[in-house]
Structure formats: C-alpha cells, structure tokens
Design a protein around this nucleic acid. Structure first.
Lengths: 153, 153
DNA sequence: TAATAATATATTGCACACAACACAGTTGTG
DNA sequence: CACAACTGTGTTGTGTGCAATATATTATTA
C-alpha cells in the first residue's frame, strides 16, 4: 500500500494513465478517420472479429463499458452497415451482434493500424509486454476492489 | 519496434490503458462526488494547488488538454466558486486562474483521495513507481511522435 | 504604419462515459 | 398460477475530449 506526501501531478499514476490514454486515442483518431471509425467503435469490431455473433452483454464485459456507452456506439456501427442485431430465440432479451461482409472486408485493411500505434510507442517488445502485464494486473485489482470504496488507508 | 500478428484484445496495450483509465475515473467519481467535483475538475485544482495563478494556457499544457475541453471545465469551477479568472495587464489575451479561499480550504479534505485510489491499485511502492515511470516514458514518446503519423512499420 | 501572421481563449458540433431510470422478458417462490 | 425479483437492453441528462472555427489581442513585416 503506497503512501504519498502530496498532490504533485508528476507523481500521480492516475494522471499518467489518463494522459497517455488521451494521447493514444488522438493517435487512433488520425488513423481511423479514413474508415469513419472512432476508437471505441474500432474496439467493438475487434471484439467481434475475435468472436462473431456474441451478445451485447458479452461485449460490455469484454470492453468494461456499460449499456449507456455501448448502445449508441453499436447503433452507429449498425447505421454504418458494419454490424447487425439479432434477437435469440431462447431468450428474447439477448441481442447478438453479427458482422456484415463490409465489416469482414474491413479487417485486413485495419489490421495495420494497431501496429502503427505500437511503433509510435517506441517501446521494445520486452518493455511493451511488461507494461501490458502491469496494466492488466492493475485493471484486475481495480475491478476487484471497485464498489467497496471506503477501505482504510 | 514491436510487431504483432493479430488484433486480439488481450494483446493490445492501448486497450489496457483505455480500460484502466475508465476504471480509475470511475473510482475517482465515487470519491469526488461528495465534493461535487469530476476527475478533470480535480486535476485542474491539483495544478493550481501546485502553482496558483498560472495562465489557462499553462494548465492546458500541463494536463495535455485543449481549450475546447478545458474552457467548460474552468467555467464550472468558476460557477462552483473555486477559481477566479483575471486578465493580465501586460497581455490582455492571457487569463490567469486564481484559487478562492473555498478551494484552498478544500485541499486538505481532498488530499486523501489520491491515496485511497493508490491503495486500491494494490501495487507495491516499487511496482507503482515503475509503472509510473513507464507511463511517463510512453507519454513522452507519444507526444514526440504525435502529428508525424505515417511512419513506415 | 497598415496589412498580416501569430497567440490566447472561447464556442460549436459530435461522440463518448456513466449514473439513473425505464422496460420487456425471464426466473424464482409462494 | 400469481407476482416479485432479476436480467438484458435501451434512453436521458451531465460532463468531458477534440476538431473546426471564431474573436480579440499582440507581434511582425512589408
């Protein structure tokens, strides 16, 4: 349990995350613009390219986002002709997402985008995966402790 | 320059950043709610607690945000009675931000918030600072290469 | 010095993120 | 079977982020 003596911005892990994420998103924006996709829309496609036809609920879990965020994103992907919604017969509440041909054709064109971003991180392969591990570990801790807020410090 | 063979979400550093940042912001929301502050509003205050009376332009640089983002945030802080705007005499374009008494009194009450979040990261002090270093290094690389997009991969 | 460029800030429009709420469909319990 | 609790999805309202643009002030240059 680390303790910190002041509020100096340079010491704040959270701000470092926040700021790096903003920079990354800006970078993706430049690369995805020509496909008329935003970064969150791209993430939904990544999930579906990985496993097509899963329920919206699964996408929510996978991306760590709620329905208020995902609903409009999916609606835009639907309008763009990239995904289709189908209700399951077994349980009429569940909506599964299906990639269209257009979306499948898009995948090889977009596959290079993340490499371009990865290159601009200027990290070695080792550093890259180490940072990735730490972040995933952090995310796990955060998701575990979320909602049990007032832990003694 | 790392190369990656596929789009798997688990391999994506950018998504790990994005997702961790969302989790962190959610956590801050819970802790800052009682002060009627959002995380970005809190960040502006942190900058000013560190150095009161600086120009909006400096806050923009420090937080890596543009005027379209900061203007409304500052306006809300102003309405909340936490900051005041003063134009400089030398250069009438420049607006400096001054903390109010109310904001100064708030600092000790909020000082503990970041410790609470830091605790919930469940990282050792060493891990914490190592991750922080890597993120700052990453941010530096990103800010260097921003705008020169189409680097050969 | 008048036209031009650059700078600091603000506004507008679009797309997230999320809390709070709404609602249809399903499950569990008497 | 009735009916309450739960689940999966959607909507609404607020506050970011950011590109594009606007405006006022200062600096530069022809």
């Amino acid at each position: 349990m680390p303790q910190f003596e002041n509020l100096k911005l340079d010491r704040q892990l959270c701000f470092a995350l926040y700021s790096a994420t903003n920079s990354i998103t800006r970078m993706y924006r430049g690369l995805l613009d020509e496909y008329d996709l935003t970064y969150p829309q791209y993430l939904v496609l990544v999930v579906l390219w990985e496993k097509d036809g899963i329920a919206i609920k699964e996408v929510m879990k996978r991306l760590n986002l709620d329905s208020g965020t995902l609903s409009p994103i999916i609606k835009r992907l639907q309008i763009a002709g990239l995904v289709e919604k189908v209700r399951t017969d077994k349980d009429e509440r569940i909506v599964r997402l299906l990639l269209t041909d257009k979306a499948r054709k898009l995948q090889p064109m977009i596959a290079d985008v993340q490499n371009q971003v990865a290159c601009q991180t200027e990290l070695s392969s080792e550093e890259f995966f180490e940072l990735l591990d730490r972040l995933n570990q952090l995310a796990a801790s955060l998701n575990n402790t979320e909602a049990k807020q007032s832990v003694a410090s």
